Every structure is written in structure tokens, then in C-alpha cells.
Simulated assay, not measured.
Amino acid sequence: MPRILTDERRDLVNAIGEFCRRECGTKERRDELTAHGQEPHNQEIYAKMAELGWLGIAVAEEYGGAGLGMADLCLFLEETAYGRVPISGFATTIISAAAYEKFGTEEQKRTVLGGVVNGRVEAISMSEPGAGSDVAALTCRAERVPGGYLVNGQKTWCSNAHIADHVLLIARTSREDSKHEGLTQFMVPTGVEGLRISGIDTMGGREVNDLYFTDCFLPDDAVVGVPGQAWKQLMTGLNLERMILAAMMLGTARRAFDDTLEYVRQREQFGRPIGSFQALKHRIADMATELECARLLLDDVAAAIDAEPGRVFAREASMAKLKCTELAKHVALEGMQMMGGYGYATEYGMESLLRSTVVSTVYGGTSEIQRDIIGKTYGL
């Protein structure tokens, strides 16, 4: 089914596609840009996108951005993921930027949002060793002291902290009857005294980090929003985080599908292309149908969010995240199976697509958490 786009959006999609083919269109070039897959963010490419004005696509015009909505942002994310451009820092940057835009002081907005537009990276830190899916159980403590707060504790799985200018930290500033109360957001410069950033080795390369806070002093003006109200502030960003991850994985799923399709059309066994055998042909047909369903879901939810930007679409955003991430993992696995040994070889790239999709059903709220959220919206 053809995607119906405005002329402006079609031009954006075409421009991104051309950029990706030119800058990272071959495996050799992507290996060069990512240190053979170990560095998923390349600042040189990121800076070029900043010059084109793309990184500020969802940033308000008064801070130098384009001031566009969710549909445009999702298109950008989908197309850059499809083109395999190494800008992993963008997702956490735009999630963090949205929090500053909603709740930050004017100085914080100009620092962070202006930085985003100009190619700077931002990070956000919620998870702890004992608080993953149950984020509100976090214990990293920010104790009130004269002139500010003293932070102690450990954070983990913080994406892009090692390349970010700031970390948007969620810490506990008081103990209340509800664990969802007494949490506060802070703007933390990554070079501040008392913060140590330690990389975690993963199958996806250098992307996530442990953060260790030891008597780290943050002044009063580091608070983002209202002290003690971080949980409520975080809830307003659920649409954005889930839609970002959904769009990225839809693009990745499309790329895995297209690479698989190209292979089964060309690879011959028993005297004919393997894609002509019913066993593979039907699997291709099923994946193509599922991709269209996922795309229609994502487009519809993005349009609804743009129509009512102040509303939290908990059910719909969770559905989009669940569908697109699970589908991406499935398509990459099917691609590896249909490509046989070549799917396992680093030469062909399917194995790297699989590595990038497997974790997508975990970060940003696991698939199990998304299903639980969807179920709750039906009164279950």
C-alpha cells in the first residue's frame, strides 16, 4: 500500500535517503564510521545532519528548530534507521530535549535545545541496578544541602552518557508514602566533579553506561521542573519515547526485509532463485503484510498525537512500540534463517541488524511492560 505523504514530507524522506546512501551506503563505509560496529554514534555524520537542520526537527522554532510534530519526527527516525546512519545519540537527545522544553528554565532550554539543533548529544538516566521496569523504586539520592543538592548512588544502562553534554538525572529527593512521589529531575553536566561514567560492553557496541555519583554537588538551578514531581513529568513524555523507538525499529525492520528480499531473489539453489520456493515466498508475504500493518499503526498514532499534542496516548503508543520492536526482531531472525550461513556472516550485515533489534524489545519498557500497560487501559 503506498504511503500518502505531503510534498514536504516526501522531499524530506527523499533527501534523507540520498544522504544515507551517499554518506554510509556501503558496509565498508559503515564499518569505517562505527569502528566495525563498536561505536554506534558518529559525530561527524551527526554534525552534517545538524547543518542540514534535521536534528532540530522537533525543537521549537524559537530555539532554532523546525517546530514540526510527531509524524515528521517518526519519518526522520524511520528513514535514518533504514539507511543505517550511525546517529544512536539522537534518540536520547530528543527524549531529553522534550523534557527541558516542557519543564526547564529559559536558560536550560536555550542551553540544551540550542545544543541539540547544533549537533550536541544529551542523555537521560532513570534505571538503577535494582530499578529497571519498576523505575519508581530507584534509590539514587539527592540530599538537600545549602545552595543545592548532594547526589550519591549508582545509575545503569544510561545510553550515550559518554558522548553527551548533560545527563537528565532522575533521583530521589524525599521519602513519601508513594514511591512515585519525591523524585526530582536534574540537569547534570557530564564533566561535573563527583560523577564517574563507566561503559558497559554489549553485543551492540559502546552505547550504554554505569553512572557513579559520589558527593556530586548540583546547584539549585540544576533542578528541571518542580522538585518532587519528576514522575508526573516523566509520564508526559511516554508518547515520545515509545514512538521514537517504534519508528526506529520500523525502519530497521524495513531494511532487514529489503536485504532479505534482495538475497532470496538472487541466490539460486536447485536451479532457481530460492525466493521462488513456496516455503520462503510465503514467509516473505507474511513479513511484507506485517510491515504494512506496523506502518499504518505508527502513522495513525503519530497523526493522533499531532492532533492532540497534550494528550497521553498510553495504549496506542505502547501498541506501536510493542508491534514495531517485536516485528523488527522477527524480520531480522527470519532474514538470518533465509540467508543461511551468509546471514550469520558479518560480511552481509544481517547479523548486525539482528543485534540491533534484539535489545529493542527490552529498552524503553520491555514488551511485557507494554502488554501490561495495554491491558490496564482495558480495565484489566
Rank of each mutant, 00 (worst) to 15 (best):
I163K: 03
A164Y: 10
D165I: 04
V167Q: 09
L168K: 08
L169R: 06
L169C: 10
L169G: 08
I170L: 11
I170A: 12
A171Q: 11
A171V: 08
R172G: 00
R172Q: 09
T173W: 02
T173N: 02
S174R: 00
R175F: 14
E176I: 02
S178E: 14
S178V: 07
K179C: 13
E181D: 13
G182F: 03
L183R: 09
L183T: 05
L183S: 08
T184C: 04
Q185Y: 12
V188R: 00
P189Q: 00
T190Y: 00
T190P: 07
V192C: 10
E193F: 06
G194T: 09
G194C: 04
R196W: 07
R196Y: 11
R196G: 05
S198A: 15
G199Y: 12
D201K: 15
T202A: 06
M203S: 15
M203H: 14
G205L: 09
G205N: 08
V208M: 03
N209P: 10
D210W: 11
D210C: 11
Y212V: 13
F213A: 10
F213R: 05
T214C: 08
T214D: 15
D215V: 07
D215Q: 13
D215H: 15
D215E: 14
C216H: 05
C216F: 02
C216M: 12
C216S: 02
L218A: 01
D220A: 00
D221R: 05
D221P: 00
A222V: 00
V223C: 03
V223I: 05
V224K: 02
P227R: 01
P227C: 03
G228D: 04
A230T: 07
A230R: 01
A230F: 04
W231A: 09
Q233C: 08
L234D: 11
M235Q: 13
G237A: 12
G237V: 07
L238T: 13
L238N: 12
N239H: 08
R242K: 15
L245H: 14
A246F: 06
A253M: 09
A253P: 11
R255F: 12
R255D: 14
A256I: 12
A256D: 11
A256K: 05
F257L: 02
F257K: 03
F257H: 10
F257V: 05
D258Y: 01
D259W: 06
D259H: 04
T260R: 01
L261Q: 12
L261Y: 08
Y263M: 05
Y263H: 14
Y263G: 04
V264K: 00
V264L: 01
R265I: 09
R265H: 01
Q266M: 05
Q266W: 09
R267A: 10
E268C: 00
F270E: 02
F270R: 06
R272W: 02
P273Q: 00
I274V: 15
G275K: 07
S276W: 02
Q278P: 05
A279S: 14
K281C: 10
K281V: 03
R283S: 12
D286T: 10
L291N: 04
C293M: 06
